[in-house]
Write a protein that binds this DNA or RNA. Structure first.
Length: 831
RNA sequence: GCCUGGGUGGUGGAACAGGUAGACACAGGGGACUUAAAAUCCCCAGGGUGAAUAGCCCGUGCGGGUUCGAAUCCCGCCCCAGGCACCA
C-alpha cells in the first residue's frame, strides 16, 4: 500500500463530513408552501440485525435521487424508519433468551449506525419504529374506524396455516404455493380471523392501475392478474326434488345449452348436503376426505380429473334437462361460487371429466369449419363461434349470445350478467405475539366489542414469557387478557391475535410526514403537503403484497377522511437483486458480502459507486470484488486529479467563456459541457446511474490527459479550463459519492455542501461544433470517416465523400445508383 | 399453458429517433517508472485471415422479411429469468 499524503483516506474524510452534515442538520426538512415538495422514499427495512447489500443498493439508488432533486431546488423529504414487528424477533428471543423488544431495538440501534456510516441523506428526526405504541396506537384507531365502516369483519373460514410460523397467511402471502417468509408449505385450517374488505376496492384498485404511468408495466400486470376481473354471468340451476338452486359463475353463458352436468368443489356446502341420506353419501364423504388429505401443492399439481356423483340432480334453466351433480377435485371453492356448470364439448376440463364418467356431450358452438359432431371430438372446442343446438339462440355469435342468454335468464329470475374478481379479502389475524394487538374484546354477554378509542393503545404486554415452542404467549397471559367489556363493563377477554405486519407498512409513508402528531394518525396539514410519495424504490418481491395493500390502505384512509390522495406512490422503481456467483446473496448459500467489511476496506463512497455503476437499477447486479476495486481506483484517481488541479489552479476562476480556446483545451471544454448534458439526461431523467457514472469517468479521463500534457503547460486559460472541468466532475459525481465530492469541493476552495449547490447547467453554445465526423459508407459498409464543417450541405457532403480516395477505390468501375445523405452524420453511396 | 422482461466480446454492461456495434469498467496482454514489488501512468484488445496500426470475410440467440442501411422495425421459432396457473 502506498501511504503517501496524496492517497485518499475514506475513513477520516467520510466520518468528518457525516459529522458536519449532522451538526448542520443538512438533511432535515420542514413544510415550505413556497417551494415545490418532492417525497422520495425507499422501502423501510425489517431490523433483522444488520444491513445487507440489497439494502445498500436500494438506499444508494434512493440517495442519488434525493440529492439530485435537492440540488434541483426541490424541498426533498427523505425519511427512514423500521418495519419493526415480525416473527424473527420472536425466534431470536427464543434462541438468545432476550425479549423481542430488546432484540428489535438493539438491532435498530446497530443498523441506524450502519446507515449513517453509508452517508445517506435521511432526515433522522422523522425516524419511526412500527413496534412502538406511539405508532401502532394509530393503527389500532384506523382499525376501529374501519370496523365502524364495515371494512373489517370477523369470520370463521378456511385459511392457509403455516406450521413453522405458527400463524395464518393471507392469499397474497402464499407465494408459489409456499409461505412467503419461510418457504414451507401451508396447510388448510378452519379458523376465526379478521378480514379487511379489500374486495370492496377491487374495481377502484383495478381502474387506477391504468392511471399509474410511473409504475413498471410488470408490476401493474401482476396486480391486474391478481385482482383477476372477469365478465360473465351468474346462473341458477334449480335442484330437482327439493328447494333451492346451485349458483354458478361462468364466462361462457353462450355454452349454457351444452351444460350436461354440474361440478361442485369438495368444500362446497351442498356437496355433503345433497348426498345426505342417499346411497352416495358414503362415497361423497370418502372422496372429500381423500381430497382434503392431499397437500395444497399436491392438489394443485393433480392433473387427473376425478369426482363422485352426489346422487342429486339439478335442471338446466334453458333446456330443462336433468343434470347430475358431481363433486370434482378440480373445482376451486374460492373462485366464483365454488360450483361450475360443466360443458364438456367446450371446456377441456369438463371434457376430460365427462369422458372418465361417461357423461353426455352436446355440441353448441360451431367454429369456422362448422360443427364437428360431439361424438367425434377428441378435445373440447374452446374458441368463440356460432351457436348451434341452442334453440332460439342458434346462429348468434358467442358474444351476442352471452348477452341474449343472460337477458333471458334475467327475465326468468334465474341469472344475470355479472363481474367476478379473483381477489379475496385480506386476512389480517396473526396468531403471533410480536405484532400490534387487534383492539377487540370478547364478551360473553355482548359478543365481539371494539375497544373504546380513548382506551387506545392496547399495548402489547412486555412482560410476556416467550414460549420456546413458538406459540404466542398472549392467550395464556391472563393478567393482560382479562379485561372489562367496553360495552357492559362485565368480565371479558382481549383478542389475542395481532395484526399482519403488512398493516404497519401500509401507511408508514404517510406517518413520516408527521411522526410526532398526537391528535390522530395523520396531521392533515402536513400530509396534505407531503403526500403522495413522488418516487418509491424497493424490491420487486412486493409487487402484489406491500404494494397492493398500500394502495388499498391509501383509499381506505382517504375514505375515512384521514388523507386526500387516491394513490400512495406516483412513481415506482423496482430494483433488481444483488447476485453473487449466480445466486441471490443468502446465508444458506454462503455467498454473502457484508457491507461493513466493504465500507471498512474501501469507504462508503466506493461501495455506493460500485452498486450504482455495475448495473442499471432495475436489473440484477452481479457482485464483483474486482469491480469494487475498480470503483475505488476511480475515486483515488479523481482525488489525485482534484488535488493537482486545486494546486495548479489555486487562485484561478473556472473558465466561463471569453478569450479564444483552441486544440485540446477547447475539446476539454466541449467534453465538460457534453458530460453535464449527458449525465443530466442519464441520471436525472432516465435514472440510469451506471451510464451517468461512465460519463463522469470519461470526463475524468479527459481531464487527466490535459492535466498531464506537458505541451499545454503555460498556455493561457489552461488552469481555468481544468478547474471548470474538475468542478463539473466533482459536482456530477456528488450524489453517488458525496463524501469525497464535498471534500474535493472544499479543497478546490469552496465552502458549504454540494447538496446545496444547484445542479449544473450546460452551455448549448459550447456544444455547437464547427466540424463534425461524417461516416462514409459504400453500399452500407463503412469505408471512410471524414471531418467536415458542420454547416456543409448535402451536396458538399456528397462531393467530399465521392472525392475521398478510399471511397473511389470501392466505387471504381461501378455505376453509382443512389446517394443517401444524413445531415452532419453519414453519406451512403449505393452502387 | 398464459402474462411480463430479457438473450450483444472472456465478464458486468453501452448504443439518442433505424445511421461508425461493443462507450465505461473488470479480467487479460505489452510498455514506462522501480534494485524489485505494490501503487501509478501509457498503449493494445469482438472473432477469423494477414508481418501489418493495409486489406478481406464473419459477427448483437436462430430462420426469414422490410430498408440505401437493422442490436433497433415486422413475421416465425429457440432459450433464460420472474409472475400467475385446473380462474370455470
Amino acid at each position: 500500500m502506498n501511504d503517501s499524503p496524496q492517497r485518499y483516506d475514506p475513513a477520516t474524510v467520510e466520518a468528518a463530513w457525516q459529522k458536519r452534515w449532522e451538526a448542520d442538520r443538512v438533511f432535515e426538512v420542514t413544510e415550505d408552501p413556497a417551494r415545490q415538495k418532492y417525497y422520495l422514499l425507499e422501502m423501510f427495512p425489517y431490523p433483522s440485525g444488520r444491513i445487507h447489500m440489497g439494502h445498500v443498493r436500494n438506499y444508494s439508488i434512493g440517495d442519488v435521487v434525493a440529492r439530485i432533486k435537492r440540488m434541483q431546488g426541490l424541498n426533498v423529504l427523505h425519511p427512514m424508519g423500521w418495519d419493526a414487528f415480525g416473527m424473527p424477533a420472536e425466534n431470536a428471543a427464543i434462541a438468545n433468551k432476550t425479549h423481542p423488544a430488546q432484540w428489535t431495538y438493539d438491532n435498530i440501534d446497530y443498523m441506524r449506525t450502519q446507515l449513517k456510516r453509508l452517508g445517506f441523506s435521511y432526515d433522522w428526526t422523522r425516524e419511526l419504529a412500527t413496534c412502538h405504541p406511539s405508532y401502532y396506537r394509530w393503527e389500532q384507531l384506523i382499525f376501529l374506524k374501519m370496523w365502524e365502516q364495515g371494512l373489517v369483519y370477523r369470520k370463521r373460514s378456511l385459511v392457509n396455516w403455516c406450521e413453522s410460523c405458527q400463524t395464518v397467511l393471507a392469499n397474497e402471502q402464499v407465494v408459489a404455493g409456499l409461505c412467503w417468509r419461510c418457504n414451507n408449505e401451508p396447510v388448510q385450517k378452519r379458523l376465526f380471523g379478521y378480514f379487511f374488505k379489500i374486495t370492496d376496492y377491487a374495481e377502484e384498485l383495478l381502474e387506477w392501475i391504468d392511471k399509474l404511468p410511473g409504475w413498471p408495466e410488470r408490476v401493474l400486470t401482476m396486480q391486474r392478474n391478481w385482482i383477476g376481473k372477469s365478465y360473465g354471468a351468474l346462473i341458477r340451476f334449480p335442484l330437482l326434488e327439493r328447494e333451492g338452486a346451485i349458483e354458478v359463475f361462468t364466462t361462457r353463458a353462450d355454452t349454457l345449452f351444452g351444460a350436461t352436468f354440474m361440478s361442485l368443489a369438495p368444500e362446497h356446502p351442498l356437496a355433503l348436503e345433497l348426498s345426505a341420506g342417499t346411497p352416495q353419501e358414503r362415497a361423497v364423504q370418502d372422496f372429500i376426505d381423500r381430497v382434503r388429505r392431499q397437500s395444497l401443492a399436491d392438489r394443485a399439481d393433480e392433473k387427473l380429473k376425478e369426482g363422485v356423483f352426489t346422487g342429486a340432480y339439478c335442471s338446466n334453466p334453458m333446456t330443462g334437462s336433468q343434470m347430475p351433480v358431481y363433486v370434482a377435485n378440480f373445482v376451486l371453492m374460492d373462485y366464483g361460487t365454488g360450483a361450475v356448470m360443466a360443458v364438456p364439448t367446450h371446456d377441456q376440463r369438463d371434457f376430460e371429466f365427462a369422458r372418465e364418467y361417461n357423461l353426455p356431450l352436446i355440441e353448441v358452438i360451431a367454429g369456422p369449419q362448422g360443427a364437428q359432431g360431439a361424438q367425434s371430438m377428441n378435445a373440447a372446442f374452446t374458441d368463440y363461434g356460432t351457436l348451434i343446438n341452442s334453440g332460439p339462440f342458434d346462429g348468434l355469435g358467442s358474444k351476442e349470445a352471452m348477452r341474449a342468454i343472460a337477458e333471458e335468464l334475467g327475465k326468468r329470475g334465474l341469472g344475470q350478467e355479472t363481474v367476478n374478481y379473483r381477489l379475496r379479502d385480506w386476512g389480517i389475524s396473526r396468531q403471533r405475539y410480536w405484532g400490534a394487538p387487534i383492539p377487540m374484546v370478547h364478551c360473553e354477554k355482548c359478543g365481539l366489542v371494539p375497544v373504546k378509542e380513548e382506551d387506545l393503545p392496547v399495548e402489547l404486554p412486555l412482560d410476556a414469557q416467550i414460549s420456546p415452542t413458538g406459540g404466542s404467549p398472549l392467550p395464556g397471559l391472563d393478567s393482560w387478557r382479562n379485561t372489562a367489556c367496553p360495552a357492559c363493563g362485565g368480565p371479558a377477554q382481549r383478542e389475542t391475535d395481532t395484526m399482519d405486519t403488512f398493516v404497519e407498512s401500509s401507511w408508514y409513508y404517510d406517518r413520516y410526514a408527521c411522526p410526532d402528531y398526537d391528535q390522530g394518525p395523520l396531521d392533515p396539514k402536513r400530509t396534505l403537503y407531503w403526500a403522495p410519495v413522488d418516487q418509491y424504490i424497493g424490491g420487486i418481491e412486493h409487487a402484489v403484497l406491500h404494494l397492493l395493500y398500500s394502495r388499498f390502505y391509501t383509499k381506505v384512509l382517504r375514505d375515512l377522511g384521514f388523507l386526500k390522495v387516491d394513490e400512495p406512490f406516483v412513481n415506482l422503481l423496482t430494483q433488481g437483486m444483488v447476485i453473487k456467483d449466480g445466486a441471490k446473496m443468502s446465508k444458506s448459500k454462503g455467498n454473502v458480502v457484508d457491507p461493513n467489511d466493504m465500507v471498512q476496506r474501501y469507504g462508503a463512497d466506493t461501495v455506493r459507486l460500485f452498486v450504482l455503476f455495475a448495473s442499471p437499477p432495475e436489473k440484477d447486479l452481479e457482485w464483483s470484488d474486482q469491480g469494487v476495486e475498480g470503483a475505488n481506483r476511480f475515486l483515488q484517481r479523481l482525488w489525485r486529479l482534484g488535488l493537482a488541479v486545486a494546486e495548479e489552479a489555486g487562485g484561478v476562476a473556472p473558465y466561463a467563456g471569453g478569450g479564444s480556446l483552441g486544440g485540446p483545451l477547447a475539446e476539454l471544454r466541449v467534453k465538460t459541457h457534453d458530460t453535464i448534458k449527458r449525465v443530466t439526461q442519464d441520471a436525472v431523467q432516465a435514472m440510469q446511474y451506471n451510464t451517468a457514472i461512465a460519463r463522469v469517468m470519461e470526463l475524468v479521463n479527459a481531464i487527466s490527459l490535459v492535466q498531464q500534457d506537458e505541451a499545454l503547460k503555460g498556455q493561457p486559460q489552461r488552469e481555468a479550463v481544468l478547474r471548470e472541468a474538475i468542478e463539473a466532475a466533482v459536482i456530477l459525481i456528488s450524489p453517488m459519492a458525496p463524501h469525497i465530492a464535498d471534500e474535493l469541493w472544499r479543497r478546490l476552495g469552496h465552502e458549504g455542501y454540494l447538496i446545496n449547490q444547484p445542479w449544473p447547467a450546460f452551455d448549448q453554445a459550447v456544444l455547437v461544433q464547427e466540424e463534425k465526423l461524417v461516416v462514409v459508407q459504400v453500399s452500407g459498409k463503412v469505408r471512410a470517416k471524414l471531418t467536415l464543417p458542420a454547416d456543409a450541405d448535402d451536396a458538399a457532403l456528397q462531393a467530399a465523400a465521392l472525392a475521398e480516395e478510399k471511397v473511389q477505390k470501392f466505387i471504381a468501375g461501378q455505376a453509382v445508383k443512389k446517394v443517401i445523405v444524413v445531415q452532419g452524420k453519414l453519406v451512403n453511396i449505393v452502387v
